[in-house]
Design a protein around this nucleic acid. Structure first.
Length: 387
DNA sequence: GCTGCTTGTACGGATCATGC
DNA sequence: GCATGATCCGTACAAGCAGC
């Protein structure tokens, strides 16, 4: 259980009260286009009812709870109304939340547990991408980047599956089969176990574990990522403002990205200044603050630099940001995408342009195949799609 | 409301690709 | 040739959430 939920100084009732106020305000502000959570659920129910599953009865039995788990691919498609810079769905909220889950489920559907993403055939890859693509309605403008983000999310899903499965290696095959029906036979599971017990793999695994252990800061964003957490932050900010309390980081850091990077690694109490920051976050904040101070005399109000080793976040970390990525920006925005553009086109963009035709073709084929066996998916959110 | 399982995410270094 | 960008994969962690 999360520590913060047990000892939160931000009173629960107060949070709920602010939540209600915020929600009502949000509804007014977005009147006509936004839909509340209950409306979303009703929409989902309507769509599900219009696409009944073969195994479900339509009598007045109490509605079965939505099945939980990784294999629960929905029989409708999500309407994507907003994207991150790299093409990940960010709205609707349902599409944002469903994206990674869907990619993971699709990976488990088409890939073998013994597969390596780098060795998987183009056919399987494109089938995965096409299956996810038919479950998300995106505009043509965003299609390229969306497909690239699908590619990343699917292989990430495959990696997650394998990591989780390695913790189940001592369980009998019957349990494994029940848990992951896509594992076709015992031989496949045995092969996976054998590969996972290979000294070379164990050595690699140990190396990766040691690598992970070197990461001093763990974010506290949760599975809804920063977009989800921002809603919580807004509530906390309102409470702090009402109490007349200014978070210490506000007085220390001017750069928004550095500020948010620090915050996502803090508990609410640390952010509010009620509890001291953990040493890694404290060091980060102080280093970043010192860097800003030193730059203040050089620049007026723009701290964004063209070199990553000159950014506030890099100064805070005292090392270069992750190779090729910009921290705290989407799921790690590409350098070219975040910092001032260069004339050249990034490699990934070139690659995408080259592969779009192939993917489109695979999608068309998959769509055709799917249309022969399953009815077309109905858009999930009718309200939002009324353009 | 609590428990505990499931999930998505960011991260790391190595390595390969690309641009100048 | 060098500097930088992009990709790969396995992991730990915190939050989400189904089920009781």
């Amino acid at each position: 259980m999360g520590k913060s939920s047990q000892k939160s100084v931000l009173d629960r009732k107060e949070v709920d009260r602010v939540d209600e106020e915020f929600s009502s305000g949000e509804q007014i502000a977005s009147s006509g286009s936004g839909s509340s959570r209950s409306e979303e659920r009703n929409n989902e129910r309507r769509v599900e009812e219009s696409n009944p599953q073969p195994t479900e009865t339509t009598t007045k039995k109490p509605r079965k709870k939505t099945p939980r788990g990784s294999h629960n691919l929905k029989e409708f498609c999500y309407v994507v109304t907003g994207h991150s810079d790299r093409g990940r769905p960010e709205s609707s909220e349902r599409a944002q939340k469903a994206f990674a889950t869907t990619c993971g489920a699709v990976a488990r559907k088409y890939c073998k547990i013994t597969d390596e993403w780098s060795d998987i055939s183009e056919v399987v890859r494109n089938t995965c991408i096409a299956d996810v693509a038919r479950r998300f309605q995106v505009t043509d403008e965003w299609r390229e980047r969306f497909l690239a983000s699908v590619n990343i999310a699917v292989w990430n899903g495959l990696a997650n599956w394998k990591t989780t499965a390695r913790k189940w290696m001592d369980k009998p095959y019957e349990i494994i089969k029940k848990k992951w029906p896509s594992i076709t036979d015992e031989a496949e599971w045995e092969k996976f176990k054998k590969e996972s017990s290979d000294p070379a793999f164990i050595a690699k695994s140990e190396r990766m574990r040691a690598l992970r252990a070197r990461k001093p800061l763990n974010h506290m964003l949760g599975s809804a990522r920063k977009e989800g957490k921002k809603k919580v932050w807004r509530k906390q900010d309102q409470i702090l403002e009402a109490a007349g309390r200014v978070p210490p980081v506000h007085n220390m850091l001017e750069d928004q990205r550095a500020r948010e990077y620090a915050r996502q690694h803090m508990t609410p109490e640390e952010w509010a200044g009620i509890e001291p920051m953990q040493p890694p976050v404290k060091n980060f904040t102080e280093n970043a603050h010192n860097w800003e101070e030193s730059k203040r005399s050089e620049t007026s109000d723009n701290f964004m630099q063209s070199k990553r080793w000159e950014s506030v976040v890099t100064a805070g970390l005292q090392k270069a940001e992750h190779t090729g990525r910009v921290l705290d920006k989407d799921e790690g925005a590409y350098w070219d995408d975040y910092f001032p553009p260069t004339p050249k086109r990034s490699r990934v963009q070139k690659k995408l342009l080259a592969s779009t035709e192939i993917i489109e073709q695979a999608k068309a084929e998959a769509r055709e195949q799917a249309s022969m066996t399953t009815p077309p998916l109905t858009p999930y959110s009718g309200e939002e799609w009324k353009v």
